[in-house]
């Protein structure tokens, strides 16, 4: 039995401790945000926050988050409404297919928590490890900068 906080709620789950966090979030705990992209920490689609830090959930064993606090895309919403950052992604239409969006938003949130006023190039550097195939990069950067500006 492993216990941790998921989006501010206590969860206890009885699955093998070596199961990837991503699989547990998706298949046992009903999380949609984090997505399987590569299973190798290479693309960032599965990013979640653990104690506020961005983590590739595909390459993280469940046991590593025991007693910690996990935040997914769903957990960023406020009363079911998009957060400032999420709303900025909507306002900037920062997606084509949108499959990478959850990982982008999580990674960007971690950046803004550390640096509330990043420059264009700081946003890009922070997101370089997150892959987008559709070419929505500039929209995504605009969305992050917009969220920063709107504080």
């Amino acid at each position: 039995m492993i216990a941790f906080k998921l989006n501010e709620k206590d969860v206890r789950i009885d699955v093998p401790a070596t199961a990837p966090l991503l699989a547990v979030l998706s298949n046992d705990l009903g999380i949609n945000g984090a997505k399987f992209g590569c299973g190798k920490s290479q693309c960032g689609a599965c990013a979640v926050l653990v104690d506020g830090e961005p983590v590739r959930s595909c390459a993280t064993q469940l046991s590593a988050v025991s007693g910690r606090s996990v935040t997914t895309l769903e957990g960023l919403t406020q009363n079911g409404k998009p957060s400032k950052l999420q709303q900025a992604f909507i306002d900037e239409q920062a997606a084509q297919c949108g499959y990478c969006a959850s990982g982008m938003i999580i990674q960007a949130q971690a950046l803004l928590d550390r640096n509330p006023n990043p420059s264009d190039s700081e946003v890009r550097t922070a997101l370089n490890g997150n892959l987008c195939r559709c070419g929505a990069h500039n929209r995504i950067v605009r969305a992050v900068l917009r969220a920063a500006k709107e504080g």
Binding site: S41, V50, T125, A126
Partner: peptide
């Protein structure tokens, strides 16, 4: 690894929370 500007693809994700 936060990549240097001259080699933007040389990134590495953090493992602080993934590894005990």
């Amino acid at each position: 690894v936060q990549p240097p500007t001259g080699a933007p693809e040389k990134t590495m994700p953090r493992f602080a929370q993934s590894l005990k």
